[in-house]
Design a protein around this nucleic acid. Sequence first.
DNA 1: TAGATTGTTAATCGATTAACAATC
DNA 2: TAGATTGTTAATCGATTAACAATC
Lengths: 211, 211
Amino acid sequence: MGKQNIPDVVIRRLPIYLRVLENLSEESYGNVISSFELGEKSGVTPAQVRKDLSLIGAFGKQGLGYEIATLRDELKRILNLDREIKVAIIGVGNLGHAIAKYIIQRYDNEKDYHLKLVALFDSDPRVIGELINGVPIDHIDSFQDKAPELGFRMVVIAVPAEVAQSVMDKCVMAGIEAVLNFAPVHLKAPKGIRIHNTDLSIDLMHLAYYL
Amino acid sequence: MGKQNIPDVVIRRLPIYLRVLENLSEESYGNVISSFELGEKSGVTPAQVRKDLSLIGAFGKQGLGYEIATLRDELKRILNLDREIKVAIIGVGNLGHAIAKYIIQRYDNEKDYHLKLVALFDSDPRVIGELINGVPIDHIDSFQDKAPELGFRMVVIAVPAEVAQSVMDKCVMAGIEAVLNFAPVHLKAPKGIRIHNTDLSIDLMHLAYYL
DNA sequence: TAGATTGTTAATCGATTAACAATC
DNA sequence: TAGATTGTTAATCGATTAACAATC
């Protein structure tokens, strides 16, 4: 039901809408929101909001808007956030460490969301065994075994550029399905695996153009 | 000279090309690269590479490709990286700290690039005065004064969502021109100021769709 | 009912891809 | 010269916006 044929640009906006709705319900905003209000708070035009939401199946009521709780639950369902999503981080340097803490802090006590950090990997013997909020740092060599054991299919790569491709290859071998890559390289992988790249340097350079 | 009318999608790819070229020159790759090779290493089609590069002015040689050093310098020029870009970070929690170290580590010893971290701000009295590689953490209240004094026009926001808009407002007041926002909210700002958003949660949720 | 806002279609806009003459 | 690859135009593809009938 409404899970096929949704273009990726649209999927990318759904978590933004969800984020807005989550904040609204905390403020117990009233039980309905219009495409105008939702667009305003999301940085998107009302027409775009309606178009996007119509693609995942229409729940709005003419003259009123969208019921917040219903829409929020539906967005979660579409994004698979109605079940637990297990995540592993490879590379526990400054950035990996910060990401780990961020995920733990944001999601571990959250009853509604289910993004769960289940494993950390590094190659530096000095950090192996260290715990971050109860999650131990394992050696990268155990990745292949740990993946099926712990059942994670999503990985954050936060290793130096030089080793990122070899780490990606391990992910492919282990059947990982989605990768969030912070290493400043374009990673090669078979089609079935979804990669999203975030590169601080590239964002900064992009912005530098507009100075 | 090729600085006007370049769509933002194209500008966003230029730093990717630049990154590839930088890596190539380190490996002293030969002095020429084709749109096929550059595309391959950038995750972009050859046609796209040629189209993009033609927009910034054409330097390729038919039958050969693009001279690496020339193209690299031209990309730097377009992206304003031929002069020093001063950056400040607001919010020195886990993430802000990691970003600070990343920028320092990557650019401070770099002779070619000129992204320079010149200031750090926070509101927590316990961290004010602390130094990160020689850069002191100042109180956010001094932001308005420090901006013109230190001359930065680009800011990284890494504060909690609740205070991000007020921090953005201070940036606007201080005449900041470009903002890289890590806080999970859509920030409102006048048109003249360029904002790029990066939100780890949104990236993770986006990927979760494909699990 | 009157007012408001959805869902959807059609129109516009913009970006990507294909193709090939020009030329190194 | 022969082979290769650019720069550019035209064709395709996809996304955004506008508009409005349907309807709560």
